[in-house]
Design a protein around this nucleic acid. Structure first.
Ligand SMILES: [Zn+2]
Ligand SMILES: [Zn+2]
Length: 440
DNA sequence: ATCGTCGGACGGTCAATCGT
DNA sequence: CGATTGACCGTCCGACGATC
């Protein structure tokens, strides 16, 4: 293994692979390479010198979510966290600095599902494969409205339903929790986008660790080397590099019924826009939530024999008599533990005559009362009965994704963001609560 | 548990191209 | 000339071995 390859060319290879384009002619000058390691040359820098053959890392996005939930989300980046607890926590162990502080969860949700991306769910039994995020982003207004209510403050939110495609099955882990009447609230567990600082300090750079904006950066302070916390120097970008012709530009149109969908395969690809009748996606405190109503379940007699679900699926509803509580020492929290394995990685959705989505009853998750609590003692909200009574704390959320009144539920963390959880409740239905569990 | 190392995935930027 | 593309060049995730 020629360890002499410059980092530059390596990186280039990777990049071009990533962008699926033929390798450029090859840059001439042999000087560049500011990347600390890899650089076979470079002045007497202390970085390593031995190139060893590591077992290549499994390119899986091992963890989707840091299971740190104590972050306050923030609409703009660059602003320091303002949750002391969280800050402390993230400092305590630098192992997972990814306790991301981004607040644009919604934007990133969107970004993660480019319209075109069709994931072959069938061939990917493993759900840990995210589609490459595209550059799509929320518009300013969308983002703004998404943040209508700060998750941490408890006050009414007027989240509005927005039409979003549900992620293709198998493309991303989905957490489910029980809604009323057998409905399922499905929440895609999207990986938060990594956010980089513009300039890492030299210490962090050398260590390949996360830096931040403040100047004696947090890490340097932690290690008592804040004196040497200096901005790294970025070199100027090269100019005059010729590129080949660009690929055909698309005629600005993304409308087209996807022919690749096997009929009834339940591929909820991008072409399926959820409608208020069967499902909805809406935002709450910057989090996009998808939920389905159990509408029209009985119909499976529609000619096509429902293909049998995956072999390893339970035939009976996932029922957990005793909501297994995840061992969370600090706060008493109960979760409905829904084993991902017990849920279909590929939901057998079917499209009804009217375009609505249907799913077979065996996938319903039994409703399970749950109490979720967060620091400031809020929990338990009960009773449906049309009366939109709020919990003890008196907060209440009013959304009507389905045309049902929505009851305020509780506060919890989703994807690292403190989020207001809730349950859609049909008038007259018994109370039900659920909670989603972040992957660990 | 902590720390240093470091391969390589991922992100941000912006010059080169393209469409008009 | 504004919109797109995609390469350049950084950041830093996460795995690993070493040390305490
Ligand atoms: Zn730093
Ligand atoms: Zn520093």
């Amino acid at each position: 293994m020629p360890s002499t390859t410059s980092f530059q060319s390596q990186q280039q290879a990777v990049d071009s692979q990533r962008h699926r384009s033929p390798p450029p002619p090859q840059q001439s000058s042999a000087d560049q390479i500011p990347h600390p390691h890899h650089s076979a040359r470079q002045q007497a820098q202390h970085h390593h010198q031995q190139s060893y053959a590591t077992t290549s890392t499994p390119q899986q996005y091992a963890s989707y979510y840091a299971t740190h939930h104590h972050l306050v989300d923030h609409p703009t980046d660059g602003t320091p966290l303002h949750d002391p607890q969280a800050q402390q926590q993230s400092l305590r162990q630098e192992q997972h600095p990814l306790v991301d502080s981004e607040g644009l969860a919604a934007a990133e949700l969107l970004a993660a599902f480019p319209q075109s991306e069709a994931v072959d769910a069938a061939s990917s039994p493993d759900v840990s494969n995210l589609p490459q995020a595209a550059a799509a982003a929320l518009t300013a207004q969308e983002a703004a409205s998404a943040d209508a209510s700060h998750p941490m403050q408890h006050h009414p939110s007027t989240a509005q339903a927005i039409a979003l495609p549900f992620p293709p099955p198998g493309s991303v882990p989905i957490a489910y929790f029980a809604g009323p009447n057998g409905s399922i609230i499905a929440i895609p567990q999207l990986k938060a986008k990594r956010r980089q600082v513009k300039n890492a300090c030299t210490n962090c750079q050398k260590a390949c660790k996360k830096c931040d904006e403040v100047r004696p950066c947090t890490r340097c302070v932690k290690y008592g080397i804040d004196k040497e916390c200096i901005d790294s120097q970025r070199k100027e970008r090269k100019k005059g590099i010729k590129r080949g012709p660009y690929k055909k530009r698309e005629p600005k149109n993304l409308e087209e019924e996807d022919p690749t969908l096997p009929q009834g395969s339940g591929n909820l690809a991008a072409t399926h826009i959820l409608t208020p009748d069967n499902a909805a996606a809406f935002q709450l405190g910057g989090t996009v939530i998808y939920s389905y109503t159990p509408a029209m379940v009985q119909s499976n007699a529609s000619g096509s024999a429902t293909s049998s679900p995956s072999p390893n699926l339970p035939q009976s509803p996932t029922h957990h008599p005793q909501a297994s509580s995840s061992s969370s020492p600090s706060s008493a929290q109960h979760h409905i533990q829904i084993q991902p394995a017990m849920l279909p990685t590929q939901m057998q959705f079917q499209k009804g005559p009217d375009g609505s989505l249907q799913y077979p009853p065996q996938y319903y998750i039994a409703t399970q009362p749950v109490v979720a609590s967060s620091g400031s003692g809020m929990e338990e909200n009960a009773n449906g009965e049309g009366s939109s009574s709020a919990g003890p704390s008196g907060q209440q959320v009013q959304i009507q994704p389905h045309g049902f009144p929505l009851q305020y539920f509780s506060q919890m963390a989703y994807a690292g963001f403190p989020t207001t959880g809730y349950v859609v409740q049909q008038p007259g239905a018994g109370s039900s609560k659920g909670s989603w569990v972040p992957r660990d």
